[in-house]
C-alpha cells in the first residue's frame, strides 16, 4: 500500500469471522498531511468490514475535529488500504482451509 503518512493497524487480533473489527489509526508522518492533526495519539474505532465505507469514517474523523477536510481523502485511503488487506488475508485463509 502507498505510504500516506497515516498508519492503520488492527487494534485486536482478527479471528477471521467477526464482521466488525477494531482498528487503530495514527499519523506516522505529519509532513504528508496538508492540515494539522489535532491529536498526538492514536484513534481507535470499530469498523464493519461488510457494511461500512472507509471514506465515511474518515469524514466522521474530520467532523469530530481530528483532521482537517483537506486530509479526509488521505485518511480514507489509509483505512481503505488496511481494510482491503484484512479482507484479502481472510479470503486467503478461507481458501487454504477449503
Amino acid at each position: 500500500a502507498e505510504d500516506t503518512g497515516v498508519r492503520v493497524e488492527l487494534a485486536e487480533e482478527d479471528d477471521g469471522k467477526k464482521p466488525t473489527i477494531a482498528l487503530k489509526l495514527w499519523v506516522e508522518d505529519h509532513k504528508k498531511l496538508k492540515g494539522k492533526y489535532k491529536e498526538s495519539g492514536a484513534i481507535e474505532f470499530t469498523f464493519d468490514l461488510e457494511k461500512e465505507v472507509p471514506e465515511v469514517v474518515a469524514q466522521e474523523m474530520v467532523e469530530s475535529g481530528f483532521f482537517q477536510e483537506s486530509d479526509a481523502k488521505t485518511v480514507g485511503k489509509s483505512i481503505r488500504d488496511r481494510v482491503a488487506l484484512i479482507k484479502w488475508r481472510r479470503g486467503r485463509t478461507a481458501a487454504i482451509v477449503a
Binding site: 498508519r7 493497524e9 487503530k24 495514527w26 506516522e28 508522518d29 505529519h30 509532513k31 491529536e39 498526538s40 495519539g41 492514536a42 484513534i43 481507535e44 474505532f45 470499530t46 469514517v57 466522521e60 474523523m61 467532523e63 469530530s64 475535529g65 481530528f66
Partner: peptide, 27 residues
C-alpha cells in the same frame, strides 16, 4: 496512560490513546 473519547453524532466512538511505542517517524 491517558485515554480520551470522542463520540461522533452518527454514534461512532473514537478512543484516543498514546501511539504504540516506537511507531512515530518524525517525533
Amino acid at each position: 496512560s491517558a485515554t480520551s473519547q470522542v463520540v461522533h453524532s452518527a454514534g461512532r466512538r473514537f478512543i484516543v490513546s498514546p501511539v504504540p511505542e516506537g511507531r512515530l517517524k518524525d517525533q
